[in-house]
């Protein structure tokens, strides 16, 4: 048990104060989602891992946990992509280049990149789940020779909800990326796959001993994707999932993000499936 006398003054932190950062780019990319590029002050870098998140704060509104969408290889700027679903995110849609925004973090555990080197990476992204996974995808692309195959499965509700369409096009045209996109409901313009994301899994040809799966999507999706991967005989410890919870403080104090005894903001949001399998509240 940690005791008061074990702690020195300089080891304590002002945990709840954001760093003021400048928005250097902003673009509405779908009806619901807006993309932002943010610059840290004084040439600092965020220093994140793919899969980590930041607490974004707007004064008068509050804070919300937002996944980092850019690869750490991008340098002093980083990117967020925010869906307008809450009080804060609805206000953020008014933010444009030049505005100042508060950032705390990065927080939590991202994807364990050291374990991913040399492996085939299978990305499974449902809806807005592509946002944190884009960080991983771009990291793999920026360090392409360090990884094996890059297989991306991406599902959205409708074609109009597809995110990062320019990049999807680019990934589609690369011969070192295997991209499979599906929508739940097609419209007249849609010529690709139709159906939930799990329909993309059975036909995959995976090398079981070298494939690592990285899954992010709406809560309902995880169970079914894991089930499909298991039926492909992919071992449990090669599956990573990034979970969403109400990560209010980001530093393991406020309690809102707890999954049974585990703090999602500290031990996650990226978990190995083996570690969350015993947690009843996880999936």
């Amino acid at each position: 048990m940690k005791r008061l006398e074990d702690v020195k003054h300089h080891e304590t932190e002002d945990l709840y104060y954001p760093t003021m950062c400048k928005v250097t780019g902003a673009k509405q990319i779908t009806e619901m989602e807006k993309w932002y590029e943010i610059e840290m002050p004084n040439g600092q870098t965020l220093g994140h891992n793919p899969g980590q998140f930041v607490e974004v704060s707007a004064f008068g509104i509050g804070e919300a946990p937002i996944s980092i969408s850019s690869s750490p290889s991008k340098g002093s700027k980083f990117e967020l992509c925010i869906r307008q679903v809450g009080t804060l995110t609805n206000v953020l849609k008014n933010y444009e280049a030049g505005d100042m925004i508060g950032i705390r973090g990065p927080f939590g555990k991202g994807f364990p990149m050291e374990k991913l080197f040399g492996k085939d990476i299978l990305v499974v992204a449902g809806g807005i789940g592509l946002v944190p996974l884009r960080s991983l995808i771009n990291y793999v692309l920026d360090n392409r020779k360090d990884f094996g195959r890059l297989i991306i499965l991406y599902g959205a509700k409708t074609p109009s909800e597809l995110l990062f369409r320019d990049e999807l096009e680019e990934w589609k045209n690369r011969d070192d990326v295997e991209l499979h996109v599906t929508v739940d409901q097609a419209d007249e313009t849609w010529e690709g796959n139709t159906g939930v994301i799990t329909t993309l899994i059975p036909s995959l040809d995976l090398k079981l001993n070298t494939t690592i799966a990285a899954i992010t999507g709406p809560p309902i999706m995880y169970k079914f994707v894991v089930m499909s991967l298991k039926s492909k005989q992919l071992p449990d410890d090669q599956i990573y999932l990034s979970l969403e919870r109400r990560m209010k403080c980001g530093v393991g104090k406020c309690g809102h993000c707890q999954i049974n005894g585990v703090y999602c903001c500290q031990d996650g949001p990226v978990f190995n499936y083996v570690d969350i399998k015993p947690l009843e509240e996880a999936l």
Binding site: K2, D6, D14
Partner: peptide
């Protein structure tokens, strides 16, 4: 003490 000072140690509490 343990809850507020383990992991990230909170200065206000300290």
């Amino acid at each position: 003490d343990h809850s507020m000072l383990s992991g990230s140690a909170e200065s206000n509490y300290f």
